[in-house]
Write a protein that binds this DNA or RNA. Structure first.
Lengths: 135, 135
DNA sequence: TACCGGTACCTAGCGTTACGTTGTACCGGT
DNA sequence: ACCGGTACAACGTAACGCTAGGTACCGGTA
């Protein structure tokens, strides 16, 4: 299910996790669980751990080992300055992309008449008419 | 530039192109140019062609060869029923993901005090308190 | 004529990413 | 002694976008 989701998560999941860590430090298992009951039901555990290793190696997070009552010690990740910068970049990219896509959706809504007649104003008309020529 | 964008486009670019094709049939070069001056400045031509081959093979589009005055004949792609279904799925997935992410942004805004105090209402509190235990 | 740039398409190999699976290690309850 | 939940790690796979090429046709300029 949701192969679509799988591909869409690429590039966004990192930002999502960074945003979660910005709110408060957390460890892998915790993050996985949180994502799961926030709707990402079929998110694999291994995916989150791999991602955490990645952002750790890039220096976006600080790590602290905290002994746990049950199981091995927890690796608690907290966002540092570099991570916050990365998160800002993520938001910038996201904002741009979401803007473009919502723009397309507005055009779609206009065509099908879903009722969502807002969000956009007049950016729709593009001056370039690349269909010139024909015959 | 924008490696962030590169990764974020994975999974979304297909939907973007499908949405463009829903508006009206188009050919590769045209789509690339359109995306370029809509903000995706450093989008590679090869990326679009590869994507078009993919969606053609999956049967989301119908293809028609149209002779061009300059250069080789254009392959004009138009969205068919299967493509429209795929596009619907894309919107569903996108809506969900965008919802989750905007939710995170709202939390971020609240923390930094950007002034964007809306969008969200009460979905923020999560019942699960997975930080139990500690010591 | 010879060259260059714009149009239009296609391909091969690469790096990144999320997934599935498996394995390790620790603990409490039955 | 065993099982299940907690917590982390490593392996290989598939999908995607990018880089970096290539082919082909056309008009303008030197």
């Amino acid at each position: 299910m949701a192969n679509q989701m799988t591909e869409m998560l690429k590039g966004t999941l990192e930002g999502i996790v960074l945003a979660i860590l910005e709110a408060r430090p957390a460890y892998g298992y915790e993050i996985t669980a949180q994502l799961r009951d926030e709707g990402f039901a079929d998110l694999a555990e291994g995916t989150v751990y791999a991602l955490l290793v990645r952002i750790e190696q890039r220096g976006f997070v600080d790590v602290e080992k905290v002994p746990s009552e049950k199981g091995p010690p927890r690796k608690v990740y907290s966002l540092n300055a570099a991570g916050r910068a990365q998160l800002d970049e993520f938001w910038a990219t996201w904002t741009f992309l979401a803007g473009r896509i919502e723009h397309l959706r507005a055009a779609h809504a206009g065509r099908t008449g879903t009722g969502t007649t807002s969000t956009d104003s007049g950016t729709t008309q593009r001056t370039t008419d690349r269909t010139e020529g024909d015959d």
